[in-house]
């Protein structure tokens, strides 16, 4: 009796030990992820901060090997290309999302669109760069800001399609039916009632899509390419922050590396703050 009890106790404590070990391992995994997040952020802040000064925001890049100068043109280029990409990608994405949520719903076609969007979201962005090179750079014999913007818009499109649909679906059907019963045409119901109800969610989705593309580098390497000077023309090669990071970090000069860290800090702060703000908006919504 006594020994039986002991054996039972031993068995039980062995199971408890395994339990603790497994749960400890899961805790370690979470710490592993958080550790790398902070390690990366720490280095970006520590190395990037000294590079941020007035010249960084206002001056053109200095010639190779010459210290000083800034990345003002790249800053403008990133802004320009991202804005154009948003202007192309967001309305197309919202309209496609509208079709899925208001008309297509459970049709086969809507299923195919959802399926392909989900694949396109994770598809390699560099392939999009190759595609845009083939349709907009090669035929027109030159890199251009517009080609860069189109490739970012392509990357944005599926993200906006899926979030727009999800957000529109959150508007209850009874709201649509109430408006229809008052005699409003379907499109007016969609634009005035459904869009208004889903506005907050759609804005969040758009913000996330902008955050996603503003850190993209690969699709810009051979579409908008690079430029050492100011460029305001859509048909000329244009510098961007991310491509500048790539070129500067791969370059041989210490000053370049510092500039790259500065640009990295800027992009990281931008992307992370957009992500966090949009998360807060979503959380505010669900708590209401």
């Amino acid at each position: 009796m006594n020994s039986d009890n002991k054996k039972c106790n031993f068995h039980y404590s062995a199971r408890r030990a395994v339990n603790f070990a497994a749960l400890g391992a899961s805790l370690l995994s979470a710490l592993f992820g958080i550790f790398f997040l902070f390690w990366i952020l720490k280095d970006v802040v520590v190395s990037g901060f000294p590079a941020i000064n007035a010249a960084f925001f206002t001056e053109l890049p200095s010639p190779p090997g010459v210290e000083g100068g800034g990345l003002a043109n790249a800053l403008l280029g990133t802004l320009m290309i991202t804005v154009i990409a948003t202007v192309i990608g967001v309305p197309s994405g919202i309209l496609a999302g509208t079709y899925l949520s208001e008309y297509g719903r459970k049709s086969r076609f809507a299923f195919a669109v959802r399926f392909l969007s989900d694949i396109l979201v994770s598809a390699p962005s560099i392939v999009v760069g190759v595609f845009v090179y083939a349709i907009l750079v090669k035929p027109f014999k030159g890199f251009s800001a517009i080609a860069g913007a189109v490739s970012l818009a392509i990357i944005m499109l599926p993200v906006v399609v899926r979030t727009a649909e999800e957000m529109l679906k959150l508007v209850p059907d009874s709201t649509r039916e109430a408006a229809l019963a008052l005699g409003a045409p379907h499109w007016k119901v969609t634009v005035h009632i459904v869009y208004r109800g889903a506005l907050r969610g759609i804005i969040t989705g758009v913000m996330l899509a902008v955050a996603r593309v503003s850190g993209e580098t690969a699709p810009l390497l051979f579409t908008s390419f690079n430029n050492s000077f100011w460029n305001f023309k859509l048909t000329e090669p244009t510098a961007t922050l991310t491509v500048s990071i790539f070129n500067y970090a791969m370059g041989p000069y210490e000053d370049w590396h510092q500039k790259a860290w500065g640009a990295a800090l800027l992009i990281t702060v931008l992307v992370l703050s957009i992500t966090i703000i949009s998360r807060l908006i979503v959380r505010g919504r669900t708590q209401q």
Binding site: G33, D43, G215
Partner: peptide, 24 residues
């Protein structure tokens, strides 16, 4: 907070990972 931290890891642009990987 932990879930958010892990998801922030996904929003860091890949070029930052690359640069950090090379220099650090």
């Amino acid at each position: 907070p932990v879930g958010t931290a892990i998801e922030l890891l996904a929003s860091i642009p890949s070029i930052i990972y690359g640069m950090w990987g090379l220099f650090v």
